[in-house]
Amino acid sequence: MKAPRIPKKILGLAFIFSIVIAALVVARMLFIPPSFGKYGHYRADAVNEIVAQEINYAGYQACMECHDEIYKPKERSYHKSVSCEACHGPAAKHVEAPDEFVPGAPRERGYCPLCHDYNPSRPTGFPQIITELHNPGKACMTCHNPHNPVLPHTPEECSACHREIANVKRISYHASLPCVRCHTVPEKHMVQPKFVFAQVPVEREFCGECHAEGAPGGPDIPRIDLDTHGERYLCWDCHYPHYPEAR
């Protein structure tokens, strides 16, 4: 018996393979989501599904539409960049049904310290308090209006705002020097700290008042020759005046 040109076994295998491949092709035709590949290798409808997600935070523009009387003064206050919902929480429901859903307001003492509690990692100059020492037990709102936070009275100590510097200086050799020994502080700096600045020394000779050779004062104060010490550098290029390291 002469074998057929294509052996039977090859035909059988070819049959099975073509079934598998055909099944894959059919499955691809049937099951690939219709919008797949419209804009790229993904289901284009997925974008619409993500867009359909409901918003919970309405955005400050929505608040300002009705609460003009609060927004206006807040806009000019230190809290101008603090969005309403940062404190009041998500309020999209309130925009939709103003009477049914009323967003809360954190009136207790715990909330404001999230921003204003003293933390050395916070940027210098950001207003911070030591919560345990700062009028313990009183709600922040008894003295401060969160929509227009002004200090009830001008701070008596520089450390009220410059906590970080004060903390360092307190344990330094300069601990006994008051801030105003080196800084001239205009009265207005206490009220408008960001507009009226305190003055800082600008010359080597200023430090020289204590540290130059022959300057008055006790023998403990380190003395240098202003002409030879430090060349063209200013004192504070190397020494941090609030925590002078050199002995």
Binding site: A3, P7, K8, K9, G12, L13, F15, I16
Partner: peptide, 15 residues
């Protein structure tokens, strides 16, 4: 067997 029962020498050789 997939219906292929050919056991000739040639067929085995092909295998």
């Amino acid at each position: 067997t997939l219906g292929a029962t050919d056991l000739s020498e040639k067929s085995i050789l092909l295998d």
